[in-house]
């Protein structure tokens, strides 16, 4: 479903502080599976997710999503794809303070022009699933970490995306909540959604919910074309 070929990503290209975060990645990701990226800090996990999720463009190489080359598209189209196909759960949750849980969740629905009533119904169903209905009118800053995370998950789901991208989703959670999160992930794959996540957390990486773990190594910022990842455990594709 997602194919990366010869992906390189440089920050501050052409300047003295030029830094190659990714250096030639080839990778194919399958639909309907949970894929986890693991690797040392700075190895480019977040960077890779932003490329896949259309939040940024590679410096060189191709990203293909469902057969379409999206690496060269103008921003407007990337936004469109991002909105329709991807749901994001950020490490810091990135909820908007001062708004209620419900208001936060329906935000990604605004640019689609779906009627508000419909969005609210959809959001309430998700809250129901995530057992958060009783907190839906609370301002997000009053919520506990686990509750905030579920709001973030609900927000990622509101546009019913095919792919869910989660960067360190359990970093702020205790063991019990992390387990709960993994259970929610299994629910996603049961619905046929694709999940991409990064994690340092063994509980996540070694969980049965994860079908494939991709280990990332530090990119070498010379131009040598070393492969920068290795598959540790993978389901056949």
């Amino acid at each position: 479903m997602i194919e990366l070929s010869q992906i390189k990503k440089a920050f501050n290209q052409g300047q003295p502080n030029e830094y190659w975060a990714l250096n030639g990645i080839d990778l194919t990701l399958e639909a309907g599976k949970v894929t986890a990226f693991r690797g040392p800090s700075g190895s480019g996990k977040t960077t890779l997710l932003t490329l896949v999720g259309c939040l940024s463009r590679p410096t060189s190489g191709r990203v293909r999503f469902k057969g379409q080359d999206i690496s060269g598209l103008p921003e407007r189209f990337l936004t469109e794809i991002r909105r329709q196909s991807f749901g994001f759960i950020f490490q810091q949750f990135n909820l908007i303070k001062g708004l209620t849980a419900l208001e936060n969740v329906i935000l990604p629905g605004f640019p689609t022009g779906r009627p508000r009533a419909e969005l609210i119904t959809a959001a309430e169903e998700i809250f129901e699933q995530l057992k958060l209905s009783h907190r839906r009118t609370a301002k997000v800053e009053w919520l506990s970490g686990g509750e905030q995370q579920r709001v973030a998950i609900a927000r990622a789901l509101i546009n019913n995306p095919e792919v869910i991208i989660a960067d360190e989703p359990t970093a702020n959670l205790d063991t019990a909540l992390s387990r709960e999160f993994m259970a929610i992930l299994e629910g996603f794959t049961a619905e046929g959604k694709t999940v991409l996540l990064t994690s340092h957390d063994p509980l996540v990486v070694e969980s049965d919910a994860v079908h494939r773990v991709i280990g990332m190594r530090m990119a070498v910022w010379s131009t040598t074309k070393k492969p920068c990842f290795s598959s540790q455990q993978s389901s056949p594709y």
Partner: peptide, 14 residues
Amino acid sequence: EIGILKAIGWETSD
């Protein structure tokens, strides 16, 4: 907030 809105699918024009 602007960053968040953009990341969750708002266009620059939105």
